[in-house]
């Protein structure tokens, strides 16, 4: 690892994780410190009782049924985008620990193939969805509503996904070598092993990690807090 890789694919990761977790906690504390509204702001018809309300809130948050009602294509795009993002995150956990039950079922090479197909597919879905969301912002009336943050986040994500796609489709490195790298991070001795260093990915891997860290750092201070705010606001809906 050269110094740039050591800083941005190494120590930056720790900074990012601390800021991400700390920032989200801080955001929640900030919300909770503001007095609650004295007025009930829910809309009808609404279920009664916290159980039924929470069930509705979870359904509204995870499936956004009203959006489906409004436009099937937006629902599909938004749904595919979020789902692919989530599954992509889950897939990355393989870099911490192999999904052993799956390997037992599919066999080692079957697992690699499975990862290639799913990871590749999600990567493409994310790329297409991000380009769509970005282009959409340049049209009327979205451009008048958008602020630089909206473009910045989409471009950032697009770059992260593009680098990921490079690693996935053009990289010559095997998963075990990436796992070595993640292990080096977990043991606080960030390093690329010889296989990575001699491959065609150090630049894209470093950029991928660096931008992902920037994304994590910005996350708690951006509109991305909708990922937690949604639970609260959708609960208010049935207040």
């Amino acid at each position: 690892m050269n110094w740039f890789q050591y800083v941005f694919a190494g120590w930056f990761v720790y900074v990012a994780l601390i800021v991400f977790v700390g920032g989200l906690i801080w955001q929640i504390v900030k919300w909770r410190r503001v007095a609650k509204s004295r007025i009930v702001m829910g809309m009808f018809p609404k279920p009664a009782g916290l159980g039924a309300r929470s069930a509705k809130m979870l359904k509204d948050t995870f499936f956004f049924p009203w959006v489906l009602d409004y436009s099937k294509s937006i629902w599909l795009f938004a749904g595919a985008f979020h789902l692919a993002g989530l599954l992509m995150f889950v897939g990355h956990l393989r870099l911490i620990h192999e999904f052993t039950p799956l390997v037992a079922w599919l066999g080692a090479s079957g697992m690699d193939q499975f990862a290639f197909l799913t990871g590749g597919a999600f990567g493409i879905v994310l790329t297409v969805a991000l380009i769509y969301l970005l282009l959409r912002r340049f049209g009327t009336p979205y451009k008048d509503l958008s602020v630089p943050e909206d473009y910045l986040l989409l471009i950032l994500l697009l770059l992260i996904v593009t680098m990921g796609n490079h690693l996935r489709f053009f990289g010559t490195v095997h998963v075990t070598d990436y796992r070595d790298y993640v292990m080096s991070l977990l043991t606080f001795k960030p390093a690329f092993n010889a296989a990575i260093l001699s491959s065609n990915v150090p630049w894209s891997l470093t950029t991928h990690v660096m931008l992902a860290c920037a994304f994590l750092i910005y996350f708690p201070f951006s509109k991305l807090v909708h990922s937690i705010g949604a639970f609260a606001t959708n609960l208010v809906r049935s207040e």
């Binding site: 955001q27 900030k30 919300w31 909770r32 503001v34 007095a35 609650k36 509204s37 004295r38 702001m41 979205y142 509503l145 958008s146 602020v147 909206d150 509109k223 807090v225 909708h226 705010g229 949604a230 609260a232 606001t233 208010v236």
Partner: peptide
């Protein structure tokens, strides 16, 4: 109030 802050922070435009 708390709900308003949620609204202001959560909208994704």
């Amino acid at each position: 109030n708390r709900t308003l802050k949620y609204y202001l922070d959560t909208c994704v435009r």
